[in-house]
């Protein structure tokens, strides 16, 4: 997915991605990534948890606005956060 992100960013749009593997992300080096700590298959959180899904997206927008260093990976532990359903 980082390969696609790099192409979009190179074309002149600001991008941010979810990382599910820090190892892969460190290698491919997309411009901005957030590692939320969710399990594989759950980049935005869990089924039916609409508030938590929205919170994840808002975090992405926040970091998209704040990041100014290319290649930054923000590491979070949202999987251990309390349920916000």
């Amino acid at each position: 997915m980082g390969l696609i992100q790099r192409a979009i960013e190179a074309a002149g749009m600001s991008t941010i991605s979810i990382s599910l593997s820090k190892e892969i992300t460190r290698s491919v080096r997309p411009p901005r990534a957030v590692y939320p700590g969710f399990p594989l298959g759950h980049p935005i959180s869990f089924p039916g948890q609409t508030v938590r899904q929205l919170s994840t997206l808002r975090l992405l927008l926040k970091y998209l606005e704040e990041m100014n260093m290319p290649g930054t990976i923000i590491e979070l532990d949202l999987n251990k956060s309390s349920e916000q359903k």
Binding site: A11, M13, I16, S17, S19, L20, P43, L57
Partner: peptide, 13 residues
């Protein structure tokens, strides 16, 4: 780009 998109969120799985 043709759609005038400013920002893109990418999600793996």
């Amino acid at each position: 780009k043709e759609d005038c998109v400013d920002i893109v969120i990418l999600t793996p799985a």
